[in-house]
Amino acid sequence: MKSFAYVNAAGEKEAVAALGPERGRFLPLAGGMDLLALMKDYIAQPDRLVNVKGLDRAIARTPDGGLRIGAAVTLTQLAESAEARRMYPAMTDAAAEVGTPQIRNVGTVGGNINQRPRCWYFRNEEFPCLKKGGSTCYAVDGENQYHAIFGDGPCHIVHPSSLAVPSVALNAKFRVVGPTGERVVDAGEYFQMPDRNLFGETVLAPNELLTHVMLPPPGAARTATYEVRFKQSHDWPLAFASVALSMSGDTVRGARVVMGAVAPIPWRSPAAEAALTGKRLTEEAAMTAADAAVQGAKPMTLNSYKVQIARTAVKRAIMKAAGLKTV
């Protein structure tokens, strides 16, 4: 990798002060599981890394009964938190399956949500694709078996973060700090489609940091994440789904259904949510919602198999949340 200077920032103020407005020049370094690989491949070539492991690393209850997760919390810490598991299994189940134990031991919540796409053309120095300022998306006519089945391009990545999807399903708020202060962004507004933001995946400016994921009080909601993986470790899911169901008795009063690894952002399905609302929670209801969730999918040349996988993930996530058997 290219050489760089290193800043060990004590907290968020120092970290923000050490970043700059120019994209890619000064980068935050958390666990480094994503960033160092990008640098070894010369996809990222920062002049300076700013260690942000000094950001908040606590999981704390909020006065309103929700949970506040610091950006520097590791995935292992999140997966092992009994409180987080009791309150938001959709989140802890996702954290517990990321990559491998070694990745979860150093990978952070902030780094997970802000990790860069895995598209192999993006990751390969030899392919100057659209996202890197070129004129072609090589995935369109290329090896697109793991690419998006939703969205109109022009870039067809799937968002790589396992935590982004339950964050949207749980209606999380992200606290962001920058040079002019802090702001709070809905998880659902944080991620951006490529037609709005081709060179990044989020609303974050280069000198802003994600500092906290704030989860609202769970109330009587039942939540779950269900992933379909080709390998049991060392890999991202082929497709997955996170759901949050607010119930009265066994009737669904409200639902949030979000799919992962199917689009450039966590892909919410209002149609699946409508299909569930007001219904009793049964396998049939889950199936109808899953059918609705993949309506309108537009697979590429090699990934139509993902439509069925996404459908199964939605159905099983709903059944898992309901406490029904998934297979």
Binding site: A5, Y6, V7, N8, E14, A17, A18, L19, G20, P21, F26, R48, P179, N207
Partner: peptide
Amino acid sequence: EGQNVKAI
């Protein structure tokens, strides 16, 4: 940006 930043 980042005056007084202690870079190594």
